[in-house]
Simulated scan of single mutants.
Amino acid sequence: MPSQALSSDSLSITRQTVIAQAQATPLDDMDSIVATYEQRIFRFHLVSIRDRDVAQTLTQDTFVRAWSARSSFRGDCSILTWLMRIALNLVRDHTRTDRFRFWKRVSDTAVDVSDISSYVPHRDSSLESRLIASEQMTLVWQSVAELSERQRSVFLLRFLEELELSEIASITGLPISTVKTHLYRALATIRARHNASLKDSL
């Protein structure tokens, strides 16, 4: 028995469904994406900017930009990598403004370096170990603040967010060899200042 021809209405609905599916992206469910990545994006902004209010604003801006540009996401990198790329660009734009340099001096919501370690997850459950790690972390963050912009970004993406070098290269737009160079120089600077601080405390 021959199948009945589809009505024009059915064909229209089918075409609309196909078009909708073709236009759908993994970023359409933004509520789930925010729930999954918000804390990591906020942490990156906070450690980069060291101001809670600004970090919260930039975190919101990250997801607003991601939603607006969701159709450009091609799936050639992870969603986290794509979000971090947006976050890094926002940090760069913000820190290059005169207004940022002014508010950095007078802001009441600035985060002290001694508080930064509380935003970094500790795998060791021992209270004593966490306290020692916190003291060492404070010394590290004091050095991180004095790194160049690129060295600081590469260091944070590698050791705070624990991203692979290839992911960092994708986020920053730098060749992997350049990422390695910035990372090496950042570590050398931090180690030197960390060792100097330890000697001064003896």
Score class of each variant (00 low, 15 high):
65 R>M: 09
23 Q>H: 11
21 Q>I: 05
62 T>D: 05
104 K>D: 13
32 S>F: 04
13 I>F: 13
37 Y>I: 05
13 I>D: 07
4 Q>W: 09
27 L>W: 09
194 H>P: 02
139 L>T: 05
145 A>N: 02
122 H>L: 08
183 L>N: 14
63 F>R: 07
170 S>R: 11
132 I>K: 11
101 R>T: 13
185 R>V: 09
40 R>V: 01
46 L>S: 02
199 K>W: 07
184 Y>Q: 13
47 V>F: 00
167 E>W: 07
44 F>L: 14
47 V>T: 04
49 I>Q: 02
49 I>M: 02
181 T>G: 04
179 V>Q: 02
171 I>K: 04
102 F>W: 03
128 E>V: 15
16 Q>M: 15
79 I>D: 07
134 S>M: 07
94 H>E: 14
186 A>Q: 06
165 L>H: 11
34 V>Q: 07
37 Y>V: 01
163 L>W: 00
158 R>V: 00
66 A>G: 11
120 V>K: 00
109 T>Q: 11
201 S>D: 13
88 L>R: 10
195 N>W: 04
165 L>I: 14
154 V>T: 11
67 W>G: 02
13 I>G: 01
42 F>L: 09
56 Q>A: 13
93 D>I: 03
58 L>P: 01
181 T>D: 12
79 I>H: 06
35 A>Q: 14
136 Q>G: 12
58 L>M: 08
26 P>E: 11
153 S>W: 02
109 T>P: 01
50 R>L: 11
27 L>E: 08
30 M>C: 08
137 M>Q: 05
125 S>Y: 05
188 A>H: 11
171 I>F: 02
75 G>H: 06
65 R>K: 15
35 A>V: 06
59 T>M: 09
53 D>A: 14
42 F>N: 06
157 L>T: 03
182 H>M: 08
142 Q>G: 15
100 F>L: 03
26 P>F: 13
11 L>K: 14
140 V>W: 01
44 F>D: 01
101 R>I: 01
166 S>M: 06
10 S>P: 04
2 P>E: 15
87 A>S: 15
83 L>T: 08
36 T>F: 08
77 C>K: 14
3 S>P: 06
67 W>A: 12
111 V>I: 13
61 D>S: 13
49 I>F: 02
120 V>C: 01
168 I>Y: 09
182 H>L: 05
122 H>P: 00
56 Q>I: 04
31 D>T: 12
89 N>T: 09
2 P>F: 13
83 L>C: 07
8 S>W: 13
101 R>K: 11
134 S>L: 00
83 L>H: 02
45 H>V: 03
82 W>A: 12
